[in-house]
């Protein structure tokens, strides 16, 4: 089975191995990590007949190219990009048979940021704390891909998923992120909370797997001083001293000391992962669903 492997021909700007991450270790300071566009990664796996938690490649803007050492099924999803096998056009968002020794290339994205490349059998690097994901904050998991690296593949599953093509949402021209305010919105002026949920921000080029950074109106605080470090959730919108919001993505630190003005709805984060620098971003306040005995008395300003 030594030919169950994938050689990296062109690594691209930043290509990492990702699965569904390693949640459950935040109390030890371990980020959750995992594919930023989870639905796209799951679809890529489904197209090649893998389990949804198999590890795939996550590319950044300019794709990558790889050479399997045995014949495999591959699929490219997420950010749309040209796909070729040995230079001949192949389908994006569909299973592609790639013979041993052929090169599959995922090209530069047409829209979006991150494409996902799945291989039948999955990328089978050694898991760390139950996950094969690369964590760029703390360095857990495999290093980002480099040209010449060889990644082991797992055994392909029997049978096929029976999916030929599947619809995928197009990366948005404008990113609309639903937020619930808090837990630290009281650290900001009412005017800052109003600006945050009414003005347009833009995705900053300093964004990465740790956070979606933005440029736009600075949010003024009413409270000075430091917040003692506290636990951070995925989608937390942290506001550092420069006043511009940062949306925490999968590799976010587990604790932090800047106040969190709001939290982005989980379902909106895959779109955030596909918003290139310059994309307009709007944060839309959504009232928290309240059950009997719901907590808090805070009101949203609209």
């Amino acid at each position: 089975m030594t030919d169950r492997a994938l050689a990296v021909v062109r690594a691209g700007a930043l290509t990492t191995v990702q699965d569904r991450g390693r949640p459950g270790h935040a109390h030890l300071g371990v980020p959750r990590s995992g594919a930023l566009d989870g639905p796209a990664a799951a679809l890529a796996n489904r197209l090649v007949g893998n389990a949804p938690d198999a590890a795939v490649l996550e590319t950044t803007l300019d794709g990558c190219s790889v050479r399997p050492r045995s014949t495999v099924t591959m699929a490219v999803t997420g950010a749309p990009c040209p796909v070729t096998v040995d230079g001949r056009p192949a389908a994006w968002g569909a299973p592609v048979r790639v013979r041993a020794g052929s090169v599959l290339e995922a090209g530069a994205v047409v829209r979006g940021v991150r494409s996902y490349v799945a291989v039948s059998g999955g990328i089978a690097v050694e898991p760390v704390l139950g996950s094969r994901s690369t964590d760029l904050l703390s360095g857990l998991g495999p290093a980002p891909l480099t040209a010449g690296a060889v990644l082991p593949l797992g055994p392909p599953r029997e049978g096929h998923a029976g999916v030929d093509v599947a619809p995928q949402p197009a990366p948005p021209a404008e990113l609309v992120l639903r937020v619930t305010t808090g837990p630290r919105d009281d650290w900001f002026t009412p005017e800052a909370v109003r600006l945050f949920t009414s003005r347009t921000y833009h995705v900053s080029p300093a964004s990465n797997r740790i956070g979606l950074r933005t440029a736009g109106p600075a949010l003024e605080r009413v409270r000075r001083g430091e917040l003692p470090s506290e636990g951070m959730v995925l989608g937390a919108v942290q506001v550092p001293p420069d006043g511009t919001p940062v949306v925490f993505l999968a590799d976010h630190p587990t604790t932090g000391g800047y106040p969190v003005i709001a939290v982005v709805h989980r379902a909106d984060l895959p779109a955030a992962a596909q918003a290139p620098p310059g994309t307009p971003v709007r944060f839309v306040a959504v009232r928290r669903r309240r059950g009997p005995g719901a907590c808090g008395s805070r009101r949203l300003r609209t």
Binding site: P23, P228, E230, G231, T254, G291, G293
Partner: peptide, 27 residues
């Protein structure tokens, strides 16, 4: 709860079902 994350003056409970009911209980 999926994660119980203590910090300097707080404990974060992440991945909870029925946060409203749990909040009332914790209060």
């Amino acid at each position: 709860a999926g994660e119980i994350v203590p910090a300097a003056r707080t404990v974060l409970l992440d991945g909870v079902t029925e946060p409203g009911r749990l909040a009332a209980e914790l209060a």
